[in-house]
Each structure stands twice: as structure tokens, then as C-alpha cells.
Design a protein around this nucleic acid. Structure first.
Lengths: 358, 358
DNA sequence: GTGAAAGCGCTAACAC
DNA sequence: GTGTTAGCGCTTTCAC
């Protein structure tokens, strides 16, 4: 039904073994025969069967991509970066969603390994992560994306969380904010931790006080949890004039809480996000955020993994932190007090800043 | 290194062939031995090797998913629907992006077939589509999602475009709009065509006039093209009070044009979208749209394809149109004229409705 | 109901 | 440089 290597070999008048070499390691074969075989292969439209090859070589030219949830807008660009990069080199990415469920993760990774994936790109890393730690120990090719693990003997590609937060804090300070709070992400992963640490450093570098209660840790990087954290923050009033959320969804949750309380962003409180999700420029108010080069993270992570696979002798694991960019939009503004001294304060009509839902 | 069927057979004291049957066709095997084999398999953590199985059966348990671009928020939920559905049955989805480039599409589909994918879920269908038409003729298992082809001898799962548009038009008419325009999508695919036809029917059913120029066809389902179309619409003024865009992105483009012209939505013009993308509730004004059950489209499409694969004798191709839902938000309101007769007209301060970028 | 044997398409020693 | 051989892990006739 389909043309096999054997057919090519017959057509070229050689043994299948030779045909295989001609196609894969032409240097081990007489140039003329090699050429003949390749010509025949082309003419017959021969396409190697990856199943058979994989069965023999226990390699599949398949890479597994482990993400929490494809519908989180953070991931599609990363995956495009991966796909475009590996596609050129004959590899294919296979995506699995774990929904941040450890059991599911084990199951999915197992399924990927059953498929003989040659390596894994992991976006679900927690600081301590038994599953992937075990894989690392087995020397299974692995690259962490977006988040990394405590151990540094493995490659990772992330955005530069620290400078991102520093840029944000500097930006707010420059606007005149002094009472800046942080809604931190969960501290079981590198992004949450790094951003929190960077916040503390940046504040201290500027000589700004961070009083007890001005840092609240959200349970998850999700809107609802941002809303909860913001409530806690506002409950013990710290004259907060700006809130640095550890990611965009937490910031959106903060919006919700603000409008519940009749407060307006940015008039009463400035808010910032992190990641620069799509459509942030269209929401109300448009969210100031940190753009992380998601496509690039995918592309570079894929490149690293391919290097690990194709040149294992020379491969050196490394942690890449890609530069990020501050994107100033309408959610940050000088604090009311500062405005009073210089500018005039404009007030939005009530309700307009509200993040409406259906 | 990894536990194989042979190991299981040994542990259970049976022949590998028997073990295979015990696992795949338990009915052909003594209940007790079957149970024993299964117990051993579980204990040893046996995972079948799909490569080997595929080599024998010339099936890969891999399904190809052809989409234009993963970063379009329309697709991730569809893919989750597919993935969750096929994952339970031992299949895996492999995604390829075509960027609506026919050359790329051919290439990618070829690569998928080289990988022995058992079937294809296609989200890039155009009314006339030589590539997939050829596959259909070859009886290659194929299901169209979101869009379908002219030929009806193949399965497809789409949202109910016609009722969606009808609901929108009815909603606007009920608000008092009479001069309703349509920014149609490209007419090379079923979604664009069906929505346009439905618009015409709905208007005519209500006895509302559709004058020349009140329907503009956008070149692509993209924001910029929506903006262009909206400009053309407004250029020859038709006293339009409402614009039905064929999808959400076209509606967002319409927002852009309106604010460029100093017009406000919904005060001056109501705008509607289609698809109900994420975050539509957060933009300003929140966009009235049609929610299409994207996860379900993926899930049902996958189910159909699996049926085609596993029960080809009884499989009947069918076109499924899933019910959609009108989601009313802030972008639709009674027209100024209508309001004047009853309500008071509120005017937003200039610039607030503007879709700001960076 | 179960064992034996063959083979899916390919690659990688190993001979020659 | 090329042919031979064996076998990756599994399924599936065919005997018994």
C-alpha cells in the first residue's frame, strides 16, 4: 500500500541495508549508489516509517511539551516557538496538559515516554519536583521553560523575572508612589519566588518601606486568587497607592476587588501585571505589564533541547534568562497625593472603570 | 530498561501472545488467566509501546489536528476538547499550524501522514479545498471542525452559525435598531458564508431593509480588516446604528474605527461579535457576542473521528451543528433615536471608549 | 483457551 | 563498500 525501504532498495538494485545507509549515512556508501538510491526514493515518493525506525532506535523525533493548560494564553506563543523551531529539524512537538494535577502529570509524562519522546520541554516546574528530578537523574533530556527548579544542573529558559519586577517598581516610584504593595504568586515555583524577592530588593534599593502586610501571597496564579489577595491587602489599609501583581491574572483579580470596593484604577490605586497577555491593551483600564518574549522562550528552549539530543558530548546545560520589557499603559499613574502637588486630578465617572462581566 | 509485554507474560507464566490477548481482547481468554495477566501488567507498570503496536497494525493512535494558528484564542479550547476526548482512548493529538498558507498546509499534512496519523481533524477548511478533497477521495478519515466544505459526504462539527446570527439580529431589532449593517467574513469558507446568508435572512424575516453598501466583506477574520471594513461602512453613511461583525476580531477592529472617528459604542453605534473569545467581558465596552461551545466542538469532532476509525462499518458521516448562545454585554444598546423617545441618552467623555495601545 | 511462529519496516552489528 | 543477519515490541494467524 505504501512504498517501503525495501521497494526503494529493489528499485535501486541494492540491499535494504545499503539503502538505509544511503539515506541516513551517505558517507558510508559509494557516492554513486547513494545517489541512485536517493533518486529512487524520491521517484517512488518514499517516506520512512517513524514507527519502525523508532522501534529499532528507540527514538521518535518527538518532543513532549508539558504545560498546565493550553487555554492559558501564556502558552500558545511558547508552543509556536517550539513548533517552528523543531519542525525545521524534523522533530514534532506533542503537547500534554496537566491542569497542575500531579497525578495527571505523572500519567501524561508516562504516556509521552511510552511514545518514546526523545526529550521534554517542561513548563510546569516547581522548585522541588520529584517527577522531573527523577527524570533528570536518569539523564533524560529535559529543558525547563518559564519556570525552573532549584537545581541548576539542567537547562532552563525563562524571562528575566527580577529585572521585570525592578522595572515595574522603578516605574511606580518614578511616578511618585511610595506605598507599593505586592501580590505575590505561589512560592512553590521559581517565578513566584523570584518576583517576590525582586520586589523586596527593588523596594529596599529605593529606600521604600515594605511594612508587614504589604506583601500578600496568592495561592494560585489566577484571577480569583488575585481578588482574594487584593481584599486582604486593602483590609488592613496601608495607604497603598500601587499594587504590583506577580502576573496579569492576579492583576485582573485586583481590578475586580477594586471595583467591588468602589475604588478606581489608576485614580485611587495603580495596578501592574506581568507577562503581557494578549488583549491587555483592550481592557479597561489597559494594564501596565511586563512583556516576556514567549515565542523566544519556546524557540530557545527547543534549540537547547535539540542540542542536548544531537550533540550530547558537547552539550552544557545552562539557564537562559531572556530580557523583558516594560509596557506602560493606563493602569499606572501618579498617586493622588503626588498629583495634588502638581497635576490636576481627573475623575472617571463611577462605574466606568468597572470590569463588567456578562 | 522498560517493562515489555514479554516481561508481563513471563511474570504471569503465559505466552506473550496470550498476554497480548488478555490485555486487548480479554473475551478470547480464560477469565482467570486474563485477570492474572492484567494484575501482573499493573504491578510491573507495563505500558504498551505504541510504536511496536503501530508497526504491526499500521496504526499510530495519533491524530493530526490542522489549525491556522494556535495563538488564535479560538483554538486552544477546541484542542483541549480533542485532547481530553482522545486521550482517554489511548490516542494522542498532534497539532500543526498552517498560518493559512496552502504550501505550508500541504507540507504539514504530509509530515503528519508520514507519522502515520490515523485521521485528521481539520480547522482550516475552505469551501473548495483540493488538498482535503483529495484525502476525502482516498477515504482518509477526516473530520472538519469550525468550518466545513461544500461537499456533505464528510463529517463536520461547527457552531450553529445561522442561529447565532439570527439571535444577534433579533436582539438588535428588539432594542429598536432598524439600520443594521454586517461586516462579513471572507467568503471562501463556510463560516463567512453561512453568517452572511443568515444575516440576510434574519433581516428579511424582520422586514428590515438591507441597502446596498450595508454589507461589507472583510478580507480576513482579523482586527485590521474589521477596521477597514468599518471605515468603508461608515464612509457612505447609511444611518447605521448597529454593526453585526462576523467574528469578535472584526468587531474589535470596528471598535478601533469608531473611536478613530470620535464615535462611541454603544451610544452611537452598537457592535456585536461572534465566538465569544476570552476576555471579551473585560474590554471596553464589553462585547456582546455569540458563545460557541469550542470545547464541545473539539470533543464531538474527536468522537466522530474515533468512531470512523474504530467502527468504520457502521460509521456514517454527519454534519453536527452545536447550539450557540447569545451573550449580551455592554456593546449593544437601544439606538439613539429610540432612546430619545424613551430614555435619556448618556454620553461618555471623549476618549474613554478608545481602545488604547501601549 | 493457549502456544508457536511469523513478520510489520527499519537499523546496526557483523561479515565478507 | 555492501550484503547478511538479527531483532526492536507487538499482534495475529494457525495449530493444537
Amino acid at each position: 500500500m505504501v512504498v517501503t525501504l525495501r521497494d526503494v532498495a529493489e528499485a535501486a538494485g541494492v540491499h535494504p541495508g545499503t539503502a538505509s545507509r544511503a539515506l541516513n549515512n551517505p558517507s558510508e556508501v559509494n557516492a554513486k549508489t547513494a545517489a541512485r538510491v536517493r533518486r529512487m526514493a524520491a521517484r517512488l515518493g518514499y517516506v520512512p516509517n517513524p514507527n519502525a525506525r523508532g522501534l529499532k532506535t528507540s527514538r521518535s523525533n518527538l518532543l513532549g511539551v508539558v504545560i498546565p493548560d493550553l487555554t492559558n494564553p501564556l502558552f500558545p506563543p511558547i508552543i509556536r516557538g517550539i513548533d517552528d523551531t523543531v519542525g525545521e529539524r524534523g522533530f514534532r512537538a506533542v503537547i500534554v496538559n496537566t491542569d497542575t494535577d500531579l497525578g495527571k502529570e505523572v500519567e501524561q509524562v508516562q504516556a509521552l515516554r511510552a511514545r518514546q519522546v526523545d526529550g521534554l520541554l517542561v513548563c510546569t516546574a516547581m522548585l522541588h519536583h520529584p517527577l522531573f528530578q527523577r527524570l533528570q537523574e536518569e539523564k533524560f533530556p529535559l529543558v525547563y521553560l518559564v519556570r525552573t527548579v532549584a537545581d541548576s544542573h539542567v537547562s532552563s529558559v525563562t524571562g528575566d523575572d527580577a529585572s521585570g519586577i525592578t522595572m515595574i517598581v522603578d516605574h511606580l516610584a518614578q511616578l511618585g508612589h511610595r506605598h507599593i504593595a505586592h501580590i505575590a504568586g505561589p512560592q512553590d515555583n521559581s517565578a513566584g519566588v523570584r518576583r517576590l524577592r525582586a520586589f523586596e530588593s527593588a523596594m529596599s534599593d529605593l529606600g521604600l518601606p515594605v511594612r508587614e502586610g504589604m506583601i500578600v501571597i496568592a495561592d494560585k496564579f489566577q484571577e480569583e486568587h488575585g481578588a482574594v489577595a487584593a481584599r486582604r491587602l486593602l483590609d488592613d489599609d496601608h495607604q497603598v497607592t500601587a499594587i504590583v501583581a506577580a502576573n496579569d491574572l492576579l492583576a485582573l483579580g485586583t481590578y475586580d476587588t477594586l471595583s467591588d470596593r468602589g475604588l478606581h484604577c489608576p485614580d485611587d490605586v495603580s495596578v501592574t501585571g506581568f507577562n503581557d497577555m494578549p488583549f491587555l491593551d483592550k481592557i479597561s483600564p489597559p494594564l501596565t505589564s511586563i512583556n516576556v518574549p514567549r515565542y523566544e522562550i519556546g524557540a530557545q528552549g527547543a534549540t537547547l533541547l535539540l542540542e542536548a539530543l544531537t550533540a550530547p558530548q558537547t552539550y552544557q546545560p545552562r539557564s537562559v534568562q531572556l530580557p523583558v520589557q516594560l509596557v506602560v499603559r493606563g493602569s499606572t499613574r501618579a498617586p493622588a497625593a503626588a498629583i495634588a502637588t502638581g497635576n490636576r486630578r481627573r475623575h472617571l465617572p463611577a462605574g466606568l472603570a468597572t470590569s463588567q462581566s456578562v
